[in-house]
Computed example of a mutant assay.
Amino acid sequence: MMNLIATLLLTSAALAGVPGQGLATVLPPEAQQALEQQSAAFIGAPGFTEVDITQSCGDDAFYTPQRFPQSNQTAFRPDADLDALAKAVLLIDCAEGPLPHARYLIRYHLAPVSQAGVAPREYIEVLRFNLGPQRYQDVIRHVEREFWPPESIFGMGPNLAWRFVFGPVQGNRAHVERASRAGLNQTDAAKQDCLGEPCLSASSPTDPADAWRAFTPPTLSAAMFREHNDADLPGPARVAQMLFLNATGGSGQAEPSESASIGQPEMVFRISKNVSGQDSGITGLLHQQGLMDDAVSELWTSLRLSSGSEPEWRRKVVHRAGRQ
């Protein structure tokens, strides 16, 4: 009998990772309505269409041995402990297909729920820009027509945006409650700013050296997932996760900020993958604001990775007026 009960409990926890089969907390009507209104406003922003992510990236496509080498080792899903930030990027690359040359602009907000004991919701927007066409034009500009490579190898796919609302259910830390998608035409994409640089710029942004200080972060937990063609370097999801882990002291658990909101999120990430140069390289930049700190108003963290080199971590601190 005890073995049967244990099996049922494990099965219940594992099913919690399946949409519609999780054991969610029942909220009072007013709290539930407020949560639904906030979620609907975020997901249904102008230009976005709500979608079922499982139609674009179902279980068979997402839970592959290539993406989760340790899958099928427990009764739980392999992403049961995966943070929402990395999961959002993985889901997009699963639904849309990976790109060899891309930039990601990620906005992250953790919103408390107005009910004691109820876990907050994570609101994540990911804009993905395909820089393959720019890289292709850069290459053929210096090559005779007969030697032009196929444009397809530089990556085919639109510029787009996804929005997710994540919440925990039993056995699954980051369960997709709602998702929406928007296409970005070339004009709209060209107007987007990625933390001080045009999002479609095919160059690696640089910052004044005297404003940054190198540092060595605490040891970060290893990735539980693999990304497409990440044998030499981490992929965009892992770079975003590394920055997130460092920002949260290694826990991967953010804390709500009283001065942050969906419109002014506490974390904004820029991830650039193979956007310039001949060698593989990926960079990440994190801007934190709304910090619960009397002296520090903003915190910038950069991470640069290139083949054959150690990760380069740098930080820039912006102090409040008169508090340095």
Rank of each mutant, 00 (worst) to 15 (best):
Q134P: 01
P205M: 07
A174G: 05
R178M: 03
R145G: 01
E122D: 13
E146V: 11
R213A: 12
Q134L: 15
A202L: 11
V113S: 01
W212L: 04
R145Q: 14
D193K: 06
R107A: 13
F166P: 00
Y123L: 13
V169L: 11
S180F: 07
Q134N: 13
C194A: 15
F154Q: 08
A209E: 06
S114D: 15
N130K: 06
K191H: 05
R107T: 13
R121P: 00
E151H: 09
A116R: 06
A119G: 02
S152T: 15
P149W: 10
A179F: 07
I140A: 08
V113M: 01
L110A: 06
P100A: 09
R173D: 04
A116S: 12
G97V: 14
H101W: 02
P100C: 06
Q186R: 10
R163E: 12
Q115V: 06
D138M: 08
A102P: 01
V169G: 05
F166E: 09
L131N: 09
N130H: 04
G157Q: 03
G97H: 08
N130S: 08
D210M: 05
I153L: 10
A119N: 12
H142L: 13
A211G: 03
R178W: 04
R145P: 11
P100N: 11
F166Y: 15
Q137L: 14
F215R: 00
P150G: 11
W212M: 03
P218F: 07
H175S: 14
S203R: 11
S204C: 03
G171R: 02
R181A: 00
A214M: 04
V169D: 04
S201M: 13
L127A: 10
E96W: 07
P150E: 14
V169K: 09
A202F: 07
H109Y: 07
